[in-house]
Amino acid sequence: MSHAHACHDHAGHDHDHTPVVTQGNERKVLLSFGLIFTFTIVETVGGLLSGSLALLADAGHMLADAAALGLAYLAFRFGRRLADARRTFGYLRFEVVAGFINAITLFAIVGWIVYEAWQRFRAPSAVLAEPMLAVAIAGLLVNVLVFWILTRGDAEHVNIKGAALHVMGDLLGSVGAVAAAIVISLTGWTPIDPILSVVVSLLILGSAWKLLGKSLHILLEGAPDDATPDAVIKRAKEAVPGVAEISHVHIWSITSGRSLATMHVRPTPEVDARTVVQAVERLLKTEFNIEHPTIAVDWNEESVACSLSSAPVSAGHR
């Protein structure tokens, strides 16, 4: 059986893998960056003047947030670039790298805060509660505003989610700073300042771990949770008549919410191969949200296959 014909003709099939990056996402990230970066300076000055580690820790969070938001904005800008001969999927994966870096920086910030808190316990210093409270309340309001901006619309995007987690950490840090300022003002007990700094920082470790795992899973081209190879094979055999065997299944994510798959499908002898391929494609798109399945047909038990995805099938190959 000759297979010299053009087996990769995907007639009517869209091969544009360039990510859809909305201008709405870009605008809200840029606006959030401006707000966070501006208040980072304010909070740093307030922390130095008041002697508050809680404020300085929160300023450290906000500085990392500003960097994360700037990186997220660059990721979206790169994501708008079209695919080329060297990067056939465009720059979509850059967004996942940004999310991965965001997660790593969260761990680094927590380590820095714990170290500074230990230094404060060893050598306590005076804290001016009134200016600390004023700056902390202002920081809380800024973080609430930025978090609200980021969680409007596409909040599950890995890049947006990474930035939002940073801001959530800041928001918790501001709450801790407000609480510490109130306690110091009422009781004069300054150890509450480094204690709450550490407690608030530890609260974000769980979210950072989840973000790290998700972004690393995508970078390693892992299968989506709801579209594992075993689940796809089982469902396709149940739902598509004429499927004799499915093999060489590879499913992976390019970025958050963008999944692709390749596989070999061997139809039973009495069915039309084109019909089976189209049915499997529909199943992958509708039930597993795989936007670009590429299916190779195994024409016989020796697994000689060529790509057939919405391409005409000649009578001799049915």
Rank of each mutant, 00 (worst) to 15 (best):
H264S: 08
E287D: 14
V297W: 01
H248T: 01
R282I: 08
S309K: 06
H264P: 02
I254N: 04
V271R: 11
R274L: 07
W252E: 05
F288N: 09
E270S: 11
R274K: 12
E287Q: 13
I254F: 08
K285V: 15
V265A: 03
V265W: 03
A305Q: 05
S247V: 09
S256L: 03
S310A: 12
V243A: 08
N300T: 11
C306M: 06
L283Y: 11
V265G: 04
I290V: 12
I295C: 05
A296E: 13
T262D: 08
S247A: 14
T268D: 06
A273G: 00
T255P: 00
F288Q: 11
T275I: 02
V280P: 01
V304F: 15
W252N: 07
P267Q: 02
A279P: 03
I290K: 00
H292L: 03
R258W: 15
V276A: 05
W299N: 03
S309W: 07
H248V: 05
L284D: 13
V276R: 02
R258N: 15
E301F: 09
A244H: 08
V280H: 00
S303M: 14
L260F: 15
P293D: 10
E281D: 13
L283C: 13
S247P: 01
R282Y: 06
I246K: 00
L260G: 09
A296I: 04
A305P: 02
T275K: 06
R274P: 04
V304A: 15
R266S: 06
L308S: 13
R266F: 03
G242P: 00
K285M: 14
V297R: 01
D272W: 01
S309L: 09
V249R: 13
P293S: 08
A305V: 03
R266D: 02
W252C: 08
F288G: 07
V297Y: 04
G242C: 03
S253I: 04
E287K: 04
E302L: 09
T286C: 12
S256V: 08
I290W: 03
H264G: 04
W252Y: 14
V297E: 03
V297Q: 05
R258M: 14
L260E: 08
I251V: 15
D272V: 03
I295F: 05
